[in-house]
């Protein structure tokens, strides 16, 4: 059965964080979390990542001190992300979506220097896909600078958005091919394919009933 799950309604409406947290966050943690969210709002940072982190920790039953620290850590990452975006877009206010995407990339362990380089390539495009593609490559132990080189070249050859994720998938597939390739070989192979890397299959919107043995 296919379930429709939209974005949280309150998030769509920019609804109040307090009402979403009430009853879900432990009362002992609520004042500290409220103040962290208020700080984010005052600094024009996106508050939704903090709300999500508070809801996540509460659902998991994380102890109060660790819950508050987790939300605080998210706020620090948002601030760092805003600095990075500000360097790339010095003449305008950092878009919240850019800040949230960069913060997520930092949470995935992408080095700030790599993030900044990738932001510079196309500062006005949504940075999420290219940053996740880079994080995917780094997670598969590709050299971060070589991975960034490949993604920059892919972008320059016309690949944008989700298609940049296909570049990371193609590199991983090359790495896993029989015979064994080095990471450098795999990157070279994908570079030779650009911009015609295979497109990842999008799951169809139909209900498929599993049968035994399938």
């Amino acid at each position: 059965m296919l379930v429709l799950v939209g974005a949280p309604l309150a998030a769509q409406n920019g609804g109040g964080a307090a009402s979403r947290l009430a009853g879900r966050v432990p009362p002992a943690a609520l004042p500290a979390i409220d103040s962290l969210i208020a700080a984010a709002v005052a600094e024009s940072l996106p508050s939704e990542p903090l709300v999500q982190k508070a809801l996540e920790g509460s659902a998991k039953g994380v102890p109060t001190d660790r819950l508050v620290n987790g939300v605080r850590r998210s706020l620090l990452q948002l601030r760092e992300a805003r600095v990075l975006v500000g360097r790339v877009m010095p003449d305008q206010q950092a878009p919240e979506a850019h800040v949230a995407a960069v913060s997520a990339a930092l949470a995935r362990g992408l080095a700030p220097a790599i993030v900044e380089r990738l932001l510079t390539v196309a500062p006005n495009e949504p940075p999420g896909p290219v940053l996740h593609a880079a994080a995917d490559l780094v997670a598969h132990r590709f050299n971060p600078d070589s991975a960034a080189d490949l993604l920059v070249e892919a972008h320059n050859k016309g690949l944008h958005g989700m298609r940049l994720l296909d570049v990371a998938v193609a590199a991983d597939h090359e790495l896993q091919r029989a015979g064994g390739r080095t990471h450098a070989d795999a990157l070279a192979r994908v570079r030779a394919l650009l911009p015609n890397v295979p497109t990842a299959e999008v799951p169809p919107a139909v209900t498929r009933r599993r049968t035994k043995g399938s």
């Binding site: 998991k60 620290n69 987790g70 362990g109 997670a139």
Partner: peptide, 13 residues
């Protein structure tokens, strides 16, 4: 793909 959940106990989402 996994990401540190940030709560300091090594948990991953």
């Amino acid at each position: 793909r996994y990401v540190d959940d940030g709560f300091g106990a090594g948990g991953e989402n």
